[in-house]
């Protein structure tokens, strides 16, 4: 039986695939096609189209809506000269640093670390709460925060006995930063829980036997072991935070643009503002900034390894 098979295949002159699944390049290609087609059509195409749109005076309404003109880099000149863009960029960086890198990553790590020393019940409770905040649909989550921070009936004012404090107006950036920490910490917590679970217990034990403090254990054993996780987590969190539109549901960028992070700025320029071409130009700038961030992270990751 097997012999007969072998004989017929021996005559075929193709090279045998050299991977565990026997897929070969062509097989792998076939497996990739459906996903790449979807991604190409609904991700890459819009991205490329954005480049083109960014160089036109395309508008939502009026003459330029029917017949957009190619205007080269004019949009970019306009955006880069716009003080609002620079303020928005600055706010975005604060937002990303505060809620993403510091907030979610750090809090997520601390929670993941602490959960390991909590009794079962408390562990389950905290984990559930953190995860629930993440899983609840964003439109519900943002309404919950609107209710919590409401000027007149908000629970926070009632708890702190500060009636009439309009948190979203007086502290808009702090509000959306804390909101975003609340929403997103779960991902880092999950990721770091999984990472900490994979740190060899023998290494931790031997460092403890050498008398290392918690801090020293973290620095000498845990961090080196989970460097890859830290990097992936920070990269993903940074990109996600950079591009999140949800804070719009809380402050709508206000008051007076005091919490207008880039995605909100784009939305306001493109849809209510009607300048689709300019919106596309800002989108592209944002993509470039993201690219730079990603490259920096990769470089850090590679350097640490050697």
């Amino acid at each position: 039986m097997a012999t007969a098979h072998a004989r017929s295949s021996g005559r075929r002159s193709r090279r045998r695939p050299d991977d565990v699944a026997g897929l070969g390049r062509t097989g792998a290609g076939t497996f990739l096609v459906p996903a790449l087609a979807l991604i190409g059509l609904f991700l890459i195409f819009p991205a490329l189209w954005t480049i083109y749109l960014g160089m036109t005076d395309y508008r939502l309404t009026g003459l330029a809506a029917a017949d957009p003109q190619f205007i080269g880099l004019e949009n970019y000149r306009q955006v880069l000269a716009d003080a609002e863009f620079w303020r928005s960029l600055r706010l975005t960086l604060i937002f990303v640093l505060g809620s993403g890198v510091l907030g979610q990553t750090l809090l997520g790590f601390c929670v993941a670390w602490s959960l390991r020393r909590l009794p079962r019940l408390a562990k389950g409770l905290i984990e559930t709460l953190v995860l629930a905040a993440w899983v609840v649909p964003t439109s519900v989550g943002s309404f919950l925060w609107l209710a919590l921070l409401d000027r007149h009936e908000g629970t926070l004012n009632w708890l702190l006995d500060t009636p009439g404090t309009a948190w979203l107006i007086e502290y808009p950036m702090a509000s959306i930063i804390i909101f975003n920490i609340w929403v997103g910490t779960a991902f880092s917590m999950l990721l770091f829980s999984s990472a900490l679970g994979a740190v060899p217990p023998s290494q931790l034990e031997s460092s403890r036997m050498a008398g290392a403090s918690t801090w020293q254990q973290l620095r000498d054993v845990v961090i080196p072991n989970i460097r890859g996780h830290i990097l992936t987590n920070t990269l993903l969190i940074t990109l996600w935070t950079f591009n999140t539109f949800t804070p719009y549901l809380l402050t709508a960028g206000g008051p007076n643009g005091a919490s207008e992070i880039l995605p909100v700025y784009i939305y306001r320029t493109a849809i209510p503002g009607g300048q689709l071409g300019v919106g596309a130009a800002i989108s592209l700038l944002m993509l470039l900034i993201n690219l730079v961030i990603a490259l920096v992270y990769m470089r850090i990751g590679r350097e640490k390894k050697t």
Binding site: M1, A2, T3, H5, A6, R7, S9, G10, R12, S13, R14, R15, R16, P17, D18, G22
Partner: peptide, 24 residues
């Protein structure tokens, strides 16, 4: 593993390029 050079026979049959499942 795909063989880079040389030949492999299993029971008189040249299976150098055969799929693993075809070799018995």
């Amino acid at each position: 593993e795909a063989i880079t050079e040389g030949t492999l026979h299993i029971g008189e049959v040249d299976v150098t390029q055969a799929e693993p499942g075809e070799r018995g």
